[in-house]
């Protein structure tokens, strides 16, 4: 039993209200409640519904961080309502909290959103095992503990959407599959029993695939199951190179270009990298490059700085490289 004393403090809530069938615009309702250190965010939603307004709507089912239904946003941060303690929210944001659905533009009623895009993208990455299964095997199909570990925690995703609706790339680029779909894709790509040849190619396509991830770590920060979708995205990049399905495009060349540059200079040759990545398309960068040149921001090839002990770096590249493109 916890020996911590239960404390109570006043918290002001601004709660998003909207009924797509009736309201032209959303509005916010204010509540001031005494919140105890034992409560989770879902307790607050319940109290608002039970004590103040029975029409207040939100999704919840398991109350145990398993069904993934209850994700909402508190002060803009994606939060699994039944798992997140109010104390953490107060520590993060103070005593004025705004309660909103995961995505305002997808709001249907109050906290309830239309998650269709999330599910469509999830379905698009073939989120299941593709394998020729012998239905009457003579022995068990064993997966070694080592191979099972490769899945990391990707298997624990509850599809709550917290990461998806925290992802800026999803918000801007509607083709982008998003962190949860990538975590699911990784889950099956990393499974030794899987024999799907298309999934990895699919999640490496431009626009929809991993290469449009901006590397902001928002997904990793919010995931209530500590799945670290960003890490899975990085692994999907690496797998594409390892399995030889990486296409030769500006995104892949941008990654490989670092190796060439480091081999030559130890450091990154910024101009050289853009040239290597873009090829003839480099012309579109000329106006900005000229402005930068005028301000002394471009180093000429003959002045490229080099790392000291470059021979060490070159030797290590030779001995430690694990991939070829």
């Amino acid at each position: 039993m916890s020996t911590n004393k239960i404390t109570t403090q006043k918290v002001n809530f601004k709660v998003f209200r909207f009924n797509a069938d009736e309201d032209y615009l959303p509005y916010y309702e204010d509540y001031s409640l005494d919140v105890t250190s034992e409560e989770v965010v879902l307790d607050i939603l319940n109290r608002i519904k039970w004590d103040y307004d029975g029409s207040f709507s939100y999704r919840r089912s398991c109350r145990h961080g398993i069904c993934g239904a209850c994700a909402i946003k508190v002060n803009g941060r994606s939060t699994l309502a039944c798992k997140e303690s109010m104390s953490t929210m107060i520590e993060y944001f103070g005593n004025d909290l705004t309660i909103e659905p995961l995505s305002i533009k997808r709001a249907v009623k109050d906290m309830i959103i239309d998650k269709a895009d999330f599910w469509e993208k999830h379905a698009a990455v073939t989120p299941y095992l593709v394998a020729d299964i012998d239905e009457t095997p003579m022995s068990e199909n064993l997966v070694s503990p080592h191979d099972a570990e490769e899945l990391n925690e990707a298997d624990l995703c509850i599809q709550c959407g917290a990461c998806h609706y925290a992802c800026p790339a999803v918000e801007i680029n509607s083709d982008f599959f998003g962190p949860a779909a990538f975590a699911a894709a990784y889950r099956f790509e990393a499974d030794v029993r899987d024999s799907d040849g298309e999934r990895l190619i699919n999640v490496n396509e431009e626009k929809q695939g991993v290469w449009d991830c901006v590397k902001c770590f928002e997904c990793t920060e919010v995931c209530p199951k500590h799945i670290n979708p960003f890490e899975k995205i990085t692994k999907l990049h690496q797998m594409a190179f390892k399995k030889g399905v990486a296409k030769n495009n500006v995104a892949t060349r941008h990654a490989v270009g670092f190796l060439h540059s480091i081999r030559k200079h130890g450091m990154l040759d910024e101009g050289g990298l853009v040239l290597y990545s873009e090829g003839p398309a480099i012309v579109k960068h000329i106006p900005v490059a000229l402005q930068m040149f005028r301000k002394g921001k471009i180093v000429m090839p003959w002045n490229m700085p080099k790392s000291g002990n470059l021979d060490e770096i070159q030797k290590l590249i030779k001995s430690s490289s694990t991939v070829k493109f």
Partner: peptide, 10 residues
Amino acid sequence: SHLQDYDDFL
């Protein structure tokens, strides 16, 4: 974070 997408160990 880009070389990391290509060759993690290196």
